[in-house]
Design a protein around this nucleic acid. Structure first.
Lengths: 195, 195
DNA sequence: TAAAAGTCTTAAACTAGTTCATTTTTTTTC
DNA sequence: GAAAAAAAATGAACTAGTTTAAGACTTTTA
């Protein structure tokens, strides 16, 4: 089996057991996508037709507000799922951009194949039930932290939770994720490092 | 069928079709709970054994930070699901309190019955897949808004999105949800009403 | 490999939101 | 239905985070 297919099967197999036939069927519903650093995987205004699994690389998912200030909602690296779930499901235009911050390789599943997947291998209802349950738990936590912690506390949390990601992204993008200006991010980092 | 059971079956039937037998089976896994205004449904430190569906009433789900300041993560009213999903799933102690802000009636499902439900009626994998998917979409949006909007914008959004809930909760609790002090909430409301 | 473009740092003036203290209004309780 | 308790309003002094601007450092591109 190809390396990329092995990776996604390992990811899925954390929650459900698949037969060899089911694995083959699943893989047949996926497509390989490559994006170079600084290229877009998708842009605001489009209706998202795919969900993505990252084999290799790093991408940022973000919106632009009226002032043109970017607000980063996630960094996606190896073994992560990404996309714009809202647009993918509701078929409304997305407000998100997804841009590669490193040359990246992904596997995509189209909306048509996603629907087909549940018909053909109902076990995937369970896989996505658990995947969404876990994402939900972490977003519930994050939406509270965004409101209740100071920027410095959010930075310290991020550093503790994603020590590998922090070394792969710019300070400016980190500021866009934490929800502050790059200038204030710079101050926080030099303060925290001094402590 | 009892009124409360009819309500929860209607809720579930939005996403999956159940036979009469399956409906009976499902209902047999639920328990009715009543809490009076100001009483707790659960408190921080406990391991959450239940998820709840609200038949009637209103409850607030919140944490207390080190200073004792409450941060409200949701208001649950009729036809909502609530609980602490993280503690329910991981069996770790909860950091949340759930307190009734009105006399309330709920249906609860225990963790044991929740697991049993998937074995006995696998269709429920689909129900929860869709339920969590929708919650995830709204939490992703909320965690971005928490970081990118001003308090005034968050208040206006809340008012537009939950016009019925806003009349049932105190200004103080709303402040705890928006993530600001009651004093500043008061200022925002009088400013927005003046506009 | 030089120039251009982007990132990071620092600092001063500013604004959104907090804190603390007091008064008024509303709700709860006996 | 009076007294007590809680919620809401207001204002002054404060702090976390923004804005603007300018210079130093790093990465990208021709």
């Amino acid at each position: 089996m190809e390396y990329s297919h092995k990776l996604i099967i390992d990811n899925v197999s954390r929650f459900i057991d698949l037969t060899e036939l089911e694995k083959q069927k699943y893989i047949s519903l996926l497509t390989t996508v490559r994006v170079k650093k600084k290229e877009f995987l998708m842009q605001a205004g489009e209706i998202t037709k795919y969900e993505y699994f990252i084999i290799k690389g790093c991408l940022k998912v973000y919106t632009l507000d009226e002032d043109g200030t970017p607000h980063i909602s996630m960094f996606a690296v190896e073994d992560y799922w990404t996309g714009d779930l809202a647009s993918f499901i509701t078929k409304e235009p997305s407000r998100y951009f997804i841009k590669a911050t490193e040359d990246s390789e992904l596997l995509s599943i189209s909306r048509v194949n996603y629907d087909l997947l549940f018909q053909e291998i109902p076990k995937f209802e369970r896989f996505y039930r658990i995947l969404y349950q876990r994402s939900l738990i972490s977003y519930i936590r994050r939406s509270n932290h965004g409101i209740s912690l100071t920027a410095e506390e959010r930075y310290i949390e991020f550093k503790k939770k994603y020590p590998k990601i922090i070394n792969r992204i710019s300070q400016k993008d980190l500021a866009g994720y934490i929800g502050i200006t790059p200038e204030f991010m710079s101050k926080i980092i030099s303060k925290v490092n001094r402590m």
